[in-house]
Amino acid sequence: MANSTTLTTGKQNIWGGGKSPFSVSYGKLMMWIFLLSDAFTFSSLLTAYGFIRYSFPSSQPNEIVKPMSHVSDQFVEEMQHTGLFSTEHWPLPELVFNHFPFLHGIHLPLFFVSLMTFVLIFSSVTMVLAVEAGHRMAKKEVANYMVLTILGGAAFLGCQAWEWTQFITEGATLHGNPFGPTAFAALFFIVTGFHGFHVFSGVVLNVIIYINVLAGTYEKRGHYEMVEKVGLYWHFVDLVWVFVFTFFYLI
């Protein structure tokens, strides 16, 4: 790898021209600027969520359904009768997101979204390991870690599709839902949908990078910087999920 000469010029005026003040390549700097603007977009969505969420009163605490207990098929109707689900106040996330694949009829609050969070964090780890292998020009390792990252992303998308299906089956639409105020389901679809679209784009980019790694494109170029740039995007998607998780499921 080429030795960087830019580090030795730290004492001189870095804004004087002739050298990069940020000491990153053009492509990486542009990726950072794109991510900053994308962060603003997500922030506006989450700010809107926070505002609408707190313009409604909070639900009284749930003292009826205990974790791991059995729930009937009429769970949503029962909750409406007890008053825990009402259009007057925001629903408790633990009562809405309490399903888990293959474990029908058991109250498992927030278990599935926690699993989704771990899947996404783990795929972020395999991505950064691919970047690290790229620094060592280890083509085979980069390829293997890219496969794991793509699988992680696909698994997350599958989980999200399952969660959406569950949510829609129970009667949630953009203009109404049995859990609480209309805005609850609408915001859920818009924000997780927008994030899911980012994950989907990330998986597509990762597949393109993976094919290029196998074809030896970056080996010929002499560096794996493209893996780093797409990696930045992929970590950003993980970062956004951290906040989607905080806002939708915890707040």
Binding site: A2, L7, H223
Partner: peptide
């Protein structure tokens, strides 16, 4: 092999990644 502007990565990067995980 073109010249790339970049900052250095420490040698114990792998360790740091797993710690962060």
């Amino acid at each position: 092999s073109e010249h790339l502007e970049h900052t250095e990565t420490p040698s114990n990067m792998k360790q740091q990644i797993w710690k962060t995980f």
